[in-house]
Amino acid sequence: MLDFTMLIEPDNLKLYADGLLTTLKLLLVSLACGLAVSVPLAVLRVARSPLLYGPVWLYTYVIRGTPMLLQLYLIYYGLSQFAVVRDSLAWPLLSEASFCATLALAINTCAYTTEMLAGAIRATSHGEVEAAKSVGMSRATLYRRILLPSALRRSLPAYSNEVVMMLHATSLASTVTLLDITGAADRLYSTYYMPFEPFLAAALIYLLLTWGLVRVFRKLEGRYLAYLAPRSH
């Protein structure tokens, strides 16, 4: 039946450890970039002028309506079609799988996070906005002091889902030759021709990571959303 002994050989353990590191690096870098860009985009998304929200709407609509695998392929395989790109200064980066994967993941998470934040900004209770205006806050101050801090906090539960989805999305990096956790399992599969054990081990690692992330977000919610919890006596 199942035989996991070959997985604990030092070389193979190292393959998984390196894979874990690659996965975490992909996840953290893309999440950080995606979140940083999504905050200004969310502010534009809730703007009243179609000139401001239109382009952002189009961006999130297209990204959320197409498979992430396709976006990754477009960047990694597709861009090389154009001589302009091949001759550009960015080519050393764009021909590198890890950069392309991080870029695709960041573009993807940014679109989802933008819509999530925009939803949270819109859901701010109108009393808070009125109160801010009544003390004479400018629009910029209103966003900086009232809308964004509150929207970011209230987005935490939805964001934890997004982070888990992104963790799972990093597995696509293995399709462009990266040796993340899935890539490591695939390598072992083709080396030993064992269909179950390598992927079961990978699945277990992802499960543990998912549980870990969910726990971290529970803690964060307890801290940052305490003011929304029912009053305890």
Partner: peptide, 18 residues
């Protein structure tokens, strides 16, 4: 809790054997 791709490879490669 597990990525689609991992499950896909697991079921695709292992499913038939199982």
């Amino acid at each position: 809790g597990v990525p689609d791709l991992v499950l896909m490879l697991l079921v695709f490669y292992g499913g038939q054997t199982a």
